[in-house]
Design a protein around this nucleic acid. Structure first.
Lengths: 196, 196
DNA sequence: GCCCGTATCTAGTCATTGACAAGTTGCGGG
DNA sequence: CCCGCAACTTGTCAATGACTAGATACGGGC
């Protein structure tokens, strides 16, 4: 699957990406070694560079793929709270992507593919907020919602909430979180927002 | 200041720590090089190892210092919302510490100094929640508050909120955030919490 | 005032890595 | 059939983390 006996690997780009995700999820981006990934794929030490240019290029490709996956995950979610749940689930399901996406110093910020994917994801995030209706300050509410979901996801991935969450589905735990803050169900109406 | 003409540096540990914080704040933990820090301090390439053992030891020392600073910053804050503001301010004022503190794979998790400092900070965080009184689920509320502050801080440091925040004080922006979610002022009473 | 234990720092070394250059293989269009 | 180009290999260099052995000087004990 990952290596062939022919001169050409056949699918080296995917093989390296997959191996990289494993390493990052297990030991973080700092443990990434292009030469190690090459060994795992059974190719020479310089082969990965042809597909990703360098270490930064590989991480940038991962981040771009991550933003695309996030945009897909958020698409067609009815309520704001449901987008939050999906945001958290995305982080748990794709920890390596999520980790790399939010470490700008590891990435090539002007990469076209990265920018495009990031725009897609941003649009989906904003779409969730506009669904709130004409809330007093939709922008502030959007930042609050994003902060809540992002903080919960980050604390989860950094093992700061292992005890409270236990074995429960993190998405459901987050749902109960938003419930305890806003009341039973989101999105709230304009009137509720003013009184809340 | 950073180097002396005597054989002994005099304060190498502090000099290396300070230089490391600069590097991390500017280029992230991945850009840290013990040899580079040694050059900046004007000592031999192996000198820092005497104080921190290895790269992981240095990062662990920074994280421990960070948790101590955070505990200090949170101490004696009257309300929960004020602790949130201070949490965000800590992240903005000590970006290198904050970054390293929440990347467990960079640290030696069983380091005594790290564990002690982390416990201090945890106690301060929990103290803020108990101030809420007998809220339905204090633990859930605590996680929600921590997630909100942590997420906002993380998004700030990763330059995902540059436009919305502009030049304003991030602490004040966060204060307005909590206000838009919970109402005018925190902590809310038990009754408000039920109705909210 | 001297001596010695030890913390601090130096000098040298090795394996590993990222990055780059130059060459080889083989797929696929014309 | 052949040729351009993408995919991969081989070789190399500087930089780094980690380790070892040794030099230096600070400070307590006498």
């Amino acid at each position: 699957m990952t290596s062939r006996n022919s001169y050409h690997h056949g699918d080296l780009r995917q093989a390296v990406l997959a191996a990289a995700l494993d390493v990052i999820a297990a030991e973080g981006p700092g443990a990434l070694s292009l030469r190690d990934l090459a060994r795992r794929a059974g190719v020479s030490h310089a082969a990965p560079a042809h597909h990703f240019k360098d270490r930064t290029g590989l991480l940038t490709a991962i981040a771009a793929q991550g933003y695309d996956l996030l945009a897909d995950a958020l698409a067609d979610a009815p309520e704001l709270s449901e987008r939050g749940v999906r945001y958290v689930r995305f982080a748990v399901d794709h920890p390596a992507h999520f980790t790399v996406m939010f470490q700008p110093e590891l990435l090539r910020a002007d990469d076209p593919a990265l920018l495009a994917a990031k725009d897609r994801a941003s649009a989906e995030l904003r779409a969730g907020v506009t669904g709130l209706g004409s809330v007093p300050d939709a922008r502030t509410a959007g930042i609050a919602a994003w902060s809540l979901a992002h903080g919960f996801a980050t604390l989860l991935l950094t093992h700061n909430l292992d005890d409270p969450v236990g074995g429960r589905d993190p998405g459901e735990v987050f749902r109960s979180l938003t419930g305890s803050m806003f009341g039973a169900d989101l999105p709230r109406t304009k009137t509720e927002q003013r009184n809340g």
